[in-house]
Computed example of a mutant assay.
Amino acid sequence: MIVLLAKRLAAVVLILLALTAVLFGLQQLSTTDPVRTMLGANASQELVAEKRAELGLDDPMAAQYFRYVGNLVQGDLGDSYRTRRAVSEDIGAFLPATLELAVYGLLLAVGLGVLFAVATTLRWPGARLFRAVLMTGAAMPSFLLALGGIIVFYKTLGWLPATGRTSIDDAPDGPTGLLTLDALLTARPDVLGDALLHLLLPALAIAIGPAVAIGRVLHSSLVTTLRTDYTRTARAKGLTDFQVMRKHVLRNSVGPALSMTGLQVGLMFAGVLVVELIFSWPGLGQYTAQSIPVDDFAAIAGVMLVLGVAYVLINTLVDLLQAAADPRIEA
């Protein structure tokens, strides 16, 4: 396990360096002049030249890149041209909302995927209907699923809210920024219940597609494992199908599903940024959408870097979970 961890951490460093190189290259290829954006279109040539020299934009490309990486290591993502604040400060304010939505979406995707796989494998009553509903939802893009959810569950039925994180005015805003966790820490069950209701529609919108992908892979793996000799022996001992599934099959089948979960995280992040706009969710999606029209490249690159780091770390965690589930995995 230690050797595997060392290899994965080395791979993480290399991937992140490649990601920073791509972001830096895109910034250099951009037709937007960051100094003009920062100072305004009416700034004099002398002032622009002075600011470029101050920011080191006239230095050789290699020197600019190493300075860029050095700043990133220190947590400096640059300054936003739009908000005039440090990008790291802006991301720190918007990230908790996105993180909370992504975490609940991932939990829903894994939970629905496991239920989908187990129900269809053991042929539970209603499994076909459940499968049909999930497959129909997965056939639609996340933004269309979000709009459909608003029309049905907010506009028509009035069961769920459609915008924001909470409708309670005095909801806690700390210490973590994760509203459901802060509600627990401050003993506010009213805020917790309201926050969960606000999370349900956007989390489902980003979870259903990954849930089907995870569930189909897990179902295939479960069917294969159920045909092995040791599961037949377990049945011969009098164990029920559910007991065989729980004690002998599930752990030996999760490897491929974990790999699929890691792959789906990237698609989920893309869905989160779009779904946030539809539900007026105050996260990185809103921040990015506000930064794009004004060519705030520092803010956009900062968000992409944070999401890239999260994706790489989650896939590294998935690799370690696979090794824990199957000790035969060593590389």
Rank of each mutant, 00 (worst) to 15 (best):
residue 45 Q to L: 13
residue 75 G to W: 09
residue 316 T to P: 09
residue 310 A to C: 14
residue 258 L to R: 09
residue 96 P to I: 00
residue 25 G to R: 06
residue 289 A to N: 10
residue 183 A to I: 10
residue 115 L to K: 06
residue 213 A to G: 00
residue 66 F to D: 13
residue 6 A to C: 02
residue 313 L to G: 10
residue 313 L to W: 03
residue 304 M to D: 04
residue 324 A to S: 00
residue 69 V to M: 11
residue 71 N to D: 15
residue 275 V to I: 13
residue 289 A to Y: 13
residue 226 L to K: 10
residue 158 G to Y: 01
residue 1 M to C: 06
residue 83 T to P: 03
residue 151 I to T: 15
residue 65 Y to A: 03
residue 58 D to R: 01
residue 49 A to G: 10
residue 33 D to V: 05
residue 315 N to D: 14
residue 203 A to R: 05
residue 158 G to E: 11
residue 259 S to C: 12
residue 271 G to R: 06
residue 9 L to M: 10
residue 180 T to C: 01
residue 140 M to E: 01
residue 323 A to P: 11
residue 242 F to E: 11
residue 80 S to M: 11
residue 185 L to I: 05
residue 223 V to Y: 01
residue 8 R to V: 08
residue 132 A to C: 05
residue 302 G to H: 12
residue 305 L to H: 12
residue 211 A to K: 04
residue 191 V to H: 07
residue 39 L to Q: 13
residue 179 L to N: 08
residue 195 A to F: 06
residue 298 A to S: 15
residue 174 G to M: 02
residue 295 D to T: 13
residue 177 G to H: 09
residue 187 A to W: 04
residue 51 K to I: 12
residue 97 A to C: 11
residue 258 L to W: 05
residue 31 T to L: 15
residue 54 E to F: 10
residue 89 E to I: 02
residue 306 V to Y: 14
residue 6 A to D: 03
residue 260 M to A: 11
residue 282 P to D: 03
residue 92 G to C: 09
residue 15 I to G: 12
residue 75 G to P: 01
residue 313 L to D: 01
residue 67 R to G: 14
residue 215 G to I: 03
residue 324 A to R: 15
residue 123 R to K: 14
residue 11 A to T: 10
residue 287 Y to R: 14
residue 143 F to N: 12
residue 85 R to M: 12
residue 56 G to Y: 00
residue 97 A to Y: 07
residue 166 T to Y: 05
residue 13 V to S: 07
residue 80 S to E: 04
residue 120 T to K: 13
